[in-house]
Design a protein around this nucleic acid. Structure first.
Lengths: 63, 63
DNA sequence: TCACTTAGTCAATGTCGCTTGACAATTGCG
DNA sequence: CGCAATTGTCAAGCGACATTGACTAAGTGA
């Protein structure tokens, strides 16, 4: 399960901390998801999709 | 996080066991997800979406 | 140079997702 | 009626998700 978080974040010039704050999760969680340590829960994936205004399928990709 | 699993399953006349087999998870997991005990992991949500040929957003709904 | 931000990582902790095995209650069918 | 299939649920266990706090390393700017 890959994801485009880093790119989407860069497009908006947000730090991992900025994104974490908007998602209401810890900065370490954002980092772990970006670096592929684990996948987000489904509810968090929805919050991410809502934040970026994209369908989940456009952010998270089957690897 | 609600979901339409029970309906989608009924449309195909599948038992929880049938669905579990196709998803390669336990019957108890299917039951727990259907009865709202917990949400599936993101990878499992993708497998479910693929199986039914629907986007994740059409199966799982923000509550 | 020095302070600050950012990114990455580690440890410890707690909860969630998923498992196997088991059992009861219900439904459908010969 | 009797039997099988289905659904719902429980307990115990394991690994994944997410947390706080702390630390290192690299880049930016005054």
């Amino acid at each position: 399960m890959k994801n485009r978080l880093k790119v989407l974040r860069a497009e908006r010039d947000w730090s991992q901390g900025d994104l974490a704050e908007r998602l209401e999760v810890s900065r370490q969680s954002v980092n772990a998801i970006e670096t592929g340590k684990y996948d987000p829960s489904l509810p968090l994936a929805f919050r991410i999709a809502d934040l970026f205004g994209l369908p989940i399928e456009d952010i998270f990709l089957r690897d």
